[in-house]
Computed example of a mutant assay.
Amino acid sequence: MSIGDDKQAIRDKVWGLLEREQAVPSGSHGKIPSFEGAERTAALLGDLDIWQQARTVKANPDHAQLPVRVRALKDGKLVYMAVPRMATLKPFYKLSPEELKVPPEEAADKRGAQSAAPRVAVSEMSPIDIVICGSVAVNRSGTRIGKGAGYSDLEVALLIEAGLITDSTIIVAPVHHLQVIEDQIPETDHDFSVDLIVTPDEVIPCSPRRRPTGLVRSDLTPDIVEAIPALGIRAEDLSS
């Protein structure tokens, strides 16, 4: 089996387990799953010193992390949330609590953000203190996998290359405890590990940290480059 096949087998196993245990809504297979206890997870994360000291949060737009995004806005933090598929030169929504004209619950929803928040280019962003990444599964060494689209990896790599994710940035995976697995998860050059796992009942520090130094250009196909103009790479440059 290939690494991709191995990862997909883990996703299928975890999606199946979550649905059998009714820890997620039916139809969660294939998604970053919303999970029972997501609000408690956001509250537990919000009690941590690293959260209270953070000023800027970058979060994925999936519904599973909506409570974390709402908590960040209520706590006065600047939130960046990816535009779906990053399909624009300005690939992030900027959710600034003092500038929002709608409640945090509306602004933090990916549909609400479309009308409530401006889009910004990477060059217009501030350094990131905390990254919230959606995950399907994660193990205690911090290796995680998403739903397989690869956007989280690209977002993190792009922000590392821009100097906005640094050694002081903490990457967090808020998940259900059933998503924390004992299995080894295969990794490639573009994968990043998380520094903390937060479940509704537990905070799990992870090590050692593993991150790319930026975009792994050998992984970028012409189709990806054409679809995500914010990468700043021309398709014809991939072979040079």
Rank of each mutant, 00 (worst) to 15 (best):
A59K: 10
Y93A: 04
D109N: 15
P174K: 14
P127G: 14
H190L: 11
E124S: 05
I3Q: 12
M1G: 13
E182I: 09
L178C: 08
L100G: 13
L89G: 07
I132S: 01
I204A: 04
P84C: 15
I160S: 07
G16Q: 14
A173C: 08
A149T: 12
V131S: 06
P103L: 05
I204T: 04
S28G: 10
E39Y: 06
D237V: 08
H190W: 15
I204M: 01
P174G: 15
A162M: 07
G134Y: 14
I145F: 06
G30V: 10
L48W: 00
S240V: 05
G4Y: 12
L154A: 03
H177S: 14
R210D: 01
G16M: 08
C133F: 08
L238F: 08
R71K: 14
L66C: 07
A162T: 10
I145A: 13
A59T: 08
V24I: 05
S168T: 07
V14M: 04
T56D: 02
I130G: 05
I204L: 02
I10L: 14
Y80T: 04
A149W: 10
K110A: 11
E236Y: 02
L196D: 00
Y151W: 02
T143Q: 15
L44F: 05
R211N: 05
I160Y: 05
S96V: 12
V225F: 09
I224M: 11
I160M: 13
P200K: 11
M1A: 11
I128S: 07
P212K: 09
V194Q: 06
G27T: 01
K101Q: 11
I50K: 09
T166D: 03
D201R: 06
E106A: 15
A227H: 01
R140H: 03
R119M: 13
K90R: 09
A121D: 03
K74P: 03
F92D: 03
V70E: 03
Q179A: 08
A54I: 03
R40E: 15
D153N: 06
E99P: 14
L158F: 04
S2E: 04
G27R: 04
T169C: 06
R217A: 07
L66S: 13
D189G: 05
E187M: 15
E236G: 07
M81N: 04
I128D: 10
L231F: 03
K13D: 07
E36F: 07
W51Y: 12
E182G: 06
R234W: 05
L18R: 08
R71P: 04
H63R: 12
R111D: 15
E36M: 10
P103G: 01
R71S: 14
L231S: 06
K13C: 05
A230W: 00
S26N: 00
A72C: 02
I233C: 06
T188R: 09
Y151G: 13
I3D: 14
P97V: 15
F35T: 01
I171M: 10
L89W: 04
S141M: 09
E106R: 15
Q65R: 02
T56V: 07
A149I: 10
L78F: 00
G146I: 13
R144E: 02
A87E: 10
V70S: 02
L48V: 02
V79S: 11
R217N: 12
K74I: 13
A235T: 07
R55Q: 12
D12C: 03
K7N: 05
V120N: 06
G163V: 00
R55V: 01
A157W: 11
